[in-house]
Design a protein around this nucleic acid. Structure first.
Lengths: 184, 184
DNA sequence: TGTTTATATTTGACTTGTCTTATATATGAC
DNA sequence: GTCATATATAAGACAAGTCAAATATAAACA
């Protein structure tokens, strides 16, 4: 499970609560690994069970107690082990392609509309990506580690490249559709 | 659910059994939408419940009876409706990027090895893709519809483009790593 | 004064997808 | 003669992810 290890990665920076972790995910890795809040809390229980994390309960009077999770030595070992283990590229699930696969049954304009709508969403995503570096700048300054910043930037670059490739595909596909003969 | 609709798409070509459908998936859309056998049979039950498909039981003496599923008129309507509905690009889950995100903690060589292994797998995938057109040629001849063939080819092209983009990323990333300063 | 947002955790239900096993039989390969 | 493969369906267990609700309180805003 990638989620538990992602959590270990964050806890290795600093002890955090489930709430903190949710925010950390939502402001950093959510573009390639979104995390549900319920999932995070469940994963934390799991990390405890495996001895990769411990809790420190910090009482608060006005709000629920904070349960601050700390990575353990064996957690750090596990994180390193996992980080060095080669990863298989996941086979991507692309719902749009199912529609494209059966799009022979649609009129040209319908198929083109499908691709145009998709392209518009990809463009929006690209614009989102473009806003990330500014948001991340504060983090980068706080952490003072150009090496960390470099790897963070790599993950963004991946998203940009793949999104651009998908857009180039939609553009060419759109242009090609009107040239397809209907019958042999 | 995309799976049910993909099944409707196939049933719209011809009536099929669950077994036939599994083969259809495995020889066509499995690169962007793999389907588990158990899932297919469950989805067929669901299609029946919704009135989008009907069964015809064809008795056989030597083997289990064939349950041949037919798309209904309302199933055809639903398929069309679904095909024309714009699709949101899924947010991709890329486990590798979690490792890259935390790769600042690794040595240069470890990070490079991670990317190299990934690139090798992507290369293998690209070679798989290269073999598909020959396999699909029989299908294409059987169906005699250049329009269908065109859309099928589009789905393959998507895979090729995205895989190439990912490979270009790994290449550049690998080359950039040795140039990162460790401390500020 | 009332509403929204932020802090903080837990639980339950549910959907998808994966993996495994069970059941039956025929054909072809070695 | 045996083993693998093809035909055909069903069901159970489980992991991962999603969604929503319950509980509690403070600060900020209109």
């Amino acid at each position: 499970m990638s989620l538990s290890h992602a959590i270990l990665g964050f806890l290795n920076y600093a002890p955090m609560t489930g709430y903190d972790l949710k925010k950390a995910f939502d402001t950093s890795v959510c573009h390639f690994w979104p995390a549900d809040q319920a999932q995070i809390y469940r994963a934390l229980r799991d990390l405890m069970r495996r001895g990769w994390a411990t809790v420190e309960i910090v009482p608060q009077e006005d709000r629920p107690n904070r349960k601050v999770y700390h990575i353990t030595d064996s957690g750090r070992e596990e994180l390193r082990r996992w980080l060095c283990t080669p990863t298989e590229p996941e086979d991507p699930r692309v719902p749009l392609l199912i529609k494209v696969f059966f799009a022979g049954q649609l009129a040209d304009e319908e198929a083109v509309a499908l691709l145009e709508a998709y392209e518009a969403r990809l463009r929006a995503r690209l614009e989102e990506y473009a806003r990330i570096p500014q948001q991340a700048a504060q983090y980068a300054e706080a952490i003072q580690s150009p090496r960390e910043v470099f790897f963070w930037a790599l993950t963004l670059d991946y998203g940009v490249r793949l999104t651009r490739a998908a857009m180039e595909w939609t553009e060419e596909a759109r242009r090609a559709i009107p040239n397809v003969r209907r019958e042999k």
